[in-house]
Design a protein around this nucleic acid. Structure first.
Length: 424
DNA sequence: AACGCACTCAACCGCCTAAAT
DNA sequence: AATTTAGGCGGTTGAGTGCGT
């Protein structure tokens, strides 16, 4: 190894211009394993100069050798990162132009969080840059209750989606859940629901059922977004509001539209391409502070306690059809969800959890149950049992608050919608 | 003016993979 | 075949900054 590396990357003679030139076994040992001698934190201009000089003379790569022979007290990784993100030539230092932003959206819709691959498509841009941009945007739009993708991008994907033929994509773009033998029908169902949510997200208002909801905080101020746009608190607070979301579904012409979808309509698509528009998000800031739908429809803000915030590695599993055309299949992770599908769900021992656990809906019911103080559904309750429980027994059995009734109605209609779409 | 919040950006960390030994 | 190593990638964090109250 040493000899081969020495052959391929002969250690360059330390230039006289380097400020520190110490090549001793002791230093190499310390530098290699100890790490105590390695500097961290912001780079200084003199360090940059050493790095640039080294790369100009010996080329990229062999970063550990750089650390060893330049005297730079930085690990190879740090050097590589500094060079790639800041020092290499042809880097664009300016802000993203609209065309680049659009490209990022499209690439993310196809690739997911593959920052390096995205950067390869954007000359002069680094993966770190794109990642930062996306994460900032993600955060902002989640807070505002806006979808992550513009309608046309979502429509493009929706038009290529065949929900009755879920695909398992070729690696490495697929999601483990798609290949897993443990994927259940519930997962598949929510795959579709996720896609619906991504496409028009009519249920966003559901997330209000969580703790920091609009129910508890109805007087949220008009919020200024970082891009200069404003959003106002959502007006969706009842089933009647959700009922009036028809147009949203009319935007997905190729998607199956069971009659149940007619119950929903949209008065305003939540994505507003014109920041100056006075037409605000239909689903807006009721989502603030909510985590209720992280596994299915929308993840509006911060992570659940104890959960690691993690973006889906790929929102869409890209595959190649027999015609050679690339298709995009919605993944079990939706673009809004930040967590594994079941990450926040109750444990199997939870008395409210059915064996046919369908994820979101039961989770919502769980929360609704918590709000109402009800704990009567058997642990062996099936999906249909759950539905009948809702329809036949739930409302009469409790003196639910308006918000609780809303939640249950929303859950019920979601469930009907999902089952009508996939099994009906 | 002080404070809090959100945003941006740079850098680090941990994991993964491929190549070398 | 198993282990080691380097490089790459994605997630996370923290400092600095600007804006609103």
């Amino acid at each position: 190894m040493v000899f081969l590396c020495g052959f391929l990357f002969p250690p360059p003679p330390p230039p006289a211009s380097y400020p520190v030139v110490v090549v001793s076994p002791l230093l190499l040992m310390v530098g290699k394993g100890g790490g105590g001698s390695l500097k961290k934190g912001p780079w200084t201009s003199s360090e940059d100069a050493v790095l640039v000089d080294y790369v100009n003379k010996h080329g990229e790569g062999n970063w550990n050798a750089l650390h060893k022979y330049s005297g730079l007290r930085r690990c190879g990784k740090s050097c590589r990162l500094r060079w790639a993100n800041h020092l290499r030539p042809n880097l664009k230092k300016s802000a993203f132009i609209p065309e680049e932003e659009r490209a990022i959206l499209e690439l993310h819709a196809k690739l997911g969080n593959k920052w390096a691959r995205m950067a390869a498509q954007l000359p002069g841009r680094t993966d770190n840059e794109i990642k930062n941009y996306w994460n900032t945007r993600l955060k902002r739009r989640q807070r505002a209750g806006l979808p992550l993708y513009p309608p046309d991008i979502m429509l493009h994907d929706a038009n290529q989606y065949t929900p009755t033929q879920p695909k398992v994509a070729d690696p490495p773009h697929d999601h483990p859940l798609l290949n897993s033998k443990t994927v259940t029908s519930s997962s598949i169902r929510f795959d579709g629901l996720n896609h619906i949510a991504m496409t028009c997200n009519p249920f966003s208002g559901l997330s209000e059922i969580s703790g920091g909801s609009v129910l508890n905080n109805p007087n949220q101020r008009l919020k200024r977004l970082g891009d200069g746009s404003f959003v106002q608190p959502s007006s969706i607070s009842s089933f009647n509001d959700i009922k009036n979301t028809q147009a949203c579904f009319n935007r997905t012409p190729t998607y199956p539209q069971p009659a149940i979808w007619d119950l929903f309509s949209a008065q305003a698509f939540p994505y507003d391409p014109d920041p100056s528009s006075t037409r605000m998000s239909a689903f807006g800031e009721a989502l603030v502070g909510s985590h209720a739908l992280v596994n299915g429809i929308f993840s509006a803000s911060g992570p659940l306690p104890g959960l690691k915030l993690e973006l889906p590695s790929s929102q869409f599993a890209e595959s190649v059809t027999t015609t050679g055309l690339s298709t995009v299949v919605p993944n079990v992770n939706d673009p809004f969800a930040q967590y594994p599908l079941t990450a926040h769900l109750p444990k199997q021992t939870d008395s409210f959890l059915s064996p046919n656990y369908s994820g979101l809906l039961e989770s919502l019911l769980h929360e609704a149950q918590g709000m109402s103080g009800i704990n009567s559904l058997s642990s062996s309750g099936s999906s249909s049992e759950l539905t009948s429980f809702i329809v036949n027994g739930f409302f009469p059995s409790i003196q639910a608050s308006n918000s609780t009734q809303r939640v249950v109605w929303q859950v019920y209609w979601c469930k009907q919608a999902v089952e009508g779409c996939y099994w009906g």
